[in-house]
Design a protein around this nucleic acid. Structure first.
Lengths: 106, 106
DNA sequence: CTTATAGTTCGATATATTTCGAACAATTAG
DNA sequence: CTAATTGTTCGAAATATATCGAACTATAAG
């Protein structure tokens, strides 16, 4: 297992990468859940999905800059990088977290 | 050619569809360009790309609710649905239009 | 009617993404 | 050391998306 992670700096955040990371049902749910919990490890957010799938989604979120993963023993604790996101793309995460995901389109 | 278009109602807008529509380099550029011009037909925004590609991108943007296409003779004039978007997802388009698309600096 | 312009639709190909199981790695407990 | 827990990495399969040329449709102009 990787025992370190690299996180992009805010100035490296790319809008398209960020939007692509968010524009997935699993990851959007993960983001909302994480926002409520404040911090969570992968297992907490597993649901019924395999670990490898979740690991992939966390990687996408991490590499785009949406979350930070802190290694704490055997647990990898994730937090949203709300401050960094706000600095780089003001209002964006607020709008997304405030949105009701709703609608009837697939 | 279709001589009418159907546009979704704001209450049908889906966050993931909207984000996916925006999260593409060609379409994001199209959105920004359209925001500056106010209204434009497909050809105006063609650049060097084939019409069929552009037609596809306009379709994605239209069906997600991001733009409205008005048929005016042989021209199909597109406008961003900023008011509808603002009602459904307050602050979202503002944040995206305000963002410098950015990435690593030179 | 003929030609030109604007844009769509179709079909094919290429590329990305998602999903998952299996094997592996790191840490902690016993 | 051994076992248990947490998460990553690898590889394969399925699905989605982007791109483009060619044929087509609709409207307008001559």
């Amino acid at each position: 297992m990787a025992n370190t992670y690299t996180h992009p700096d805010p100035q490296e955040f790319n809008l398209i990468s960020i939007l692509r990371a968010i524009a997935d049902p699993v990851r959007l749910e993960l983001i909302r859940h994480l926002h409520q919990l404040g911090e969570a490890n992968c297992s907490t957010l597993l649901g019924s999905r395999p670990k490898s799938s979740m690991s992939h989604h966390f990687q996408v979120l991490r590499e785009s800059g949406i979350l930070h993963t802190r290694i704490d023993g055997v647990n990898h604790r994730n937090t949203l990088r709300l401050d960094d996101l706000e600095k780089r793309f003001p209002g964006l995460m607020n709008a997304i977290l405030a949105a009701s995901s709703g609608g009837s389109r697939p």
